[in-house]
Structures are given as C-alpha cells and as structure tokens.
Amino acid sequence: MPNPPATLDALARIGWQGTLPAEEDGTRIARVIAQHRAGYELHDGTTAFNAQPAPRFLKPDVGPEARPAVGDFVRVTPAKPPLIEAILPRRSLLERAAAGERHRRQLIAANIDTVMIVCGLDGDFNPARIERYLLLVEGSGARACVVLTKADLAGDHTEPMAIVRERVPATVDVIAVNAKSTASVAPLLALLGPGTSSVLVGSSGAGKSTLTNTLLGETRQATQSVRANDSRGRHTTTSRALILLPSGGCLIDTPGMREIKLTGEETLDGAQFADIDALAAECRFGDCAHHGEPGCAVRAALDDGRLCTERWHNYLKLRDELAAAAESLEAQLRRKSESRVLTKALNKRLAEKYGRQ
C-alpha cells in the first residue's frame, strides 16, 4: 500500500467532493472500487490496492448498510493487508431490498451523483420497470437519467421515447443511444465530467457493459449477445466495479437485476407520481378510493386519457408492494426489539443467579 496520504486532487479524480476531513493518525482515505469474496479493492486516486474489512464489519448483527459498499470513501490503516477501519459519511446511497422473504438491504452504490437507468429498445423495453427504478432513485440522494439503448436496432424510436417521457418526471433526462457508437453516447458525457460518479442499472442484456466499453474507448467489460425470443442477456458483469473514465468521471457498472425489490421506505408522494397525487387532491371526497365514487378526479382522468391506464395500474401495484414491504420491515424491527429485551432479561437473571463474570 502506498505510504503518502492521498491529496485532495488525487481523491477528486476518484469522485471526492468538498474539502478533506481532518486526518486521523495512522489512517488514510481511499475509495472502494470493487468488492470480492476475498475482500475489497480500493483506489486512492493514484494507485489501486486490496484491503480487508476490520473484524467488526463481519459481525452477524452488522447490517449491510453499515458495511463498506462500492463507491464508499473509507479510512484505511496501513496494516498487512490494509484494513478498512471506518466508512466516511455518504452523500448518497442507492439500495434495494435483497431477494427472498427475509427483509435485508442490498447496497448497489454509494456517493453517486447520477443513476443511469439502462433499458433496451427491444424486448427489454418496459416502462413499468423504469418507474420502479425511479422510485428507488428518488430516496437515494442522486439524480436519475433514463438511457434507452439499441436505438440503432429500433428504427423510428419516437413512440417509445414518447411513452417514457409521459411516465417520468420532466426533471429526468431521457436519452436514446446506440451504445456501440462514440458519437451517439456523447450526450451522456455531460453527466460524466471530472469529479462526478454515476452508476448503471438495468436488466441483463440491456447494454450496460457495451455502454461502459464505449465510454471507456476500449473493451474492458465482457459482453454477450441476448436471446432472440425475449432480448434477455446472461450476467456478463458479475460484480459491481467502479471504473475511471477518460472524461474524468467515475462509472459503476453493475450486474443485471432480475428483481427490483422495494425496501419499504420509498414513498409515492415524490415527483415520480406527483400528477396522480394532484388528481387525488381534486376528488370530491377526501377518502376517495378511486373505484367509482362520484366526483373522482382520478377516474375522470383515466376516462378521458389524461392519465395512462398502464401507469395507474403500476402505481397501484407499487403502492400495495410498498405497504407490504413497510409492514415486513416494521415486523422485523419489532422482533429485533423483543429479542434484545429477552436477551437483556436473561442476562440479568443469570447475573443474579451466578454473579457477573
């Protein structure tokens, strides 16, 4: 591991923003650029090196959100191997609920400025999935950009562009590209300037790795063709990795996501569905269920085409899923609290009977 502490200029090259925090004896700052089963890969703005997490990060009761993630800036001690001792405060964090019945978080990327939601203009095209991604992004602290790939194969893509534009907030950029063409992806460079960090998310086969290679100007990420019947791809990217781009920005490529599970802490009252909230506020009755009540502004908008039926159905689906996820989260927190109370009571009884050790 290099000895001199990383400078502000060096850390800015890997996405650090603002002034440096006060130095702490024996530690230096680096950024997590990859996570493997054997440990982490870090970069200090000059050199990449391997590191291990401090033992406290590996305790079973430490949740994923309290462990280092790709994109994190961390303090490292010069041990052999170097040890990650602390995670510096995050300016943003993109996460989802992990697959399975147990409620756990999966961190996707930390300290990012832009989440690029990649969707192919082929069988991968799915506006409802884009809305789901946008719901995750809203609470992350990062901005969203929808990147529609395979524009070269789609012919006239005016209609799908219009569909997406209708279903996302006006503040979200929607850009159609040929991911293999340097000229076509050039508009994305405005989001990938020096000191910025972006992450690519989307399904397998959407073109994330191809887009990464084009932005890099070289073939570094493996790519594979998609199945002809459904445009699905295999997981060519198997782990998250932060890559330094010639434009000066940092880009995190991620494996394709088959399931975009909500954490339960997202809300539907943000910009993503602001128009539906506005319509609901115009209903005659404050407790309108929008099923057929007189004076329902939502039903009127559905009937006259101002509100897209598919979008409304997706809104209801997300609402129900959020309610279930929030209930699951609350139940899990309640069980943890009850377990701590029982453990404390048991320890007290043991201490009274046998004395404190």
Rank of each mutant, 00 (worst) to 15 (best):
P294E: 10
G256M: 10
T219H: 15
K353C: 02
L244S: 14
N126V: 05
C119Y: 04
A142N: 09
Y354N: 05
L350Y: 14
E265C: 04
A280H: 08
A186G: 06
I163L: 15
E131M: 00
L191E: 02
K344F: 14
A186V: 05
L342I: 12
S209D: 02
G45K: 01
R75Y: 11
R311D: 11
P160V: 12
Y40C: 05
T196K: 09
V174I: 13
R13W: 06
R220N: 05
W312M: 10
E23Q: 14
L262Y: 03
A98W: 12
T254D: 01
A151I: 15
G355V: 11
L94R: 07
G120V: 01
S184W: 01
M116A: 04
T237S: 10
C145V: 09
P127L: 03
G264S: 03
S337W: 15
R311C: 08
L307Y: 04
L346N: 12
H43C: 03
H291D: 09
M116S: 00
S328C: 05
P169K: 03
L188Y: 01
A128G: 07
N314C: 08
I33E: 01
T182C: 03
G63W: 14
G155R: 10
A222W: 05
S209F: 12
A324F: 10
V174D: 08
H103F: 11
L188I: 00
C250K: 03
I108R: 11
A109G: 03
A281E: 11
A38E: 04
L245P: 07
Y40P: 09
A271F: 08
G141L: 08
E101L: 12
L318M: 09
D277Y: 08
G139P: 00
G120I: 06
P255N: 02
I276L: 07
I175P: 14
M161E: 12
Q106K: 14
T343P: 09
H235M: 01
I175T: 15
T196V: 00
P5C: 00
T214F: 04
G256I: 10
H291T: 10
A142G: 03
D230Q: 06
G155Y: 04
K180A: 05
G15T: 04
V32T: 06
T219S: 13
A162F: 06
A79W: 11
I163S: 12
R167F: 13
Y40F: 15
R232E: 07
A38M: 08
A190P: 07
R240D: 01
L302C: 09
V146H: 02
A66C: 12
F285I: 03
L148V: 08
Q221E: 13
E65K: 12
V174Y: 08
E159C: 07
C308M: 11
R31H: 02
S198C: 06
A183I: 14
V74D: 02
E321W: 02
E282I: 03
P68N: 05
S337E: 15
L211R: 06
H313Y: 06
T212N: 10
A79I: 04
L11F: 09
R13T: 14
E166L: 07
H36M: 01
I117C: 05
V146E: 02
E159L: 15
C145E: 00
G39Y: 04
A324C: 05
P21Q: 04
Q332A: 11
E41K: 04
A345P: 07
A109I: 09
Q17G: 02
I33Y: 03
R299L: 13
A206N: 01
P4C: 12
L316E: 14
L83G: 05
I252Y: 08
G141I: 10
A278M: 10
P127R: 01
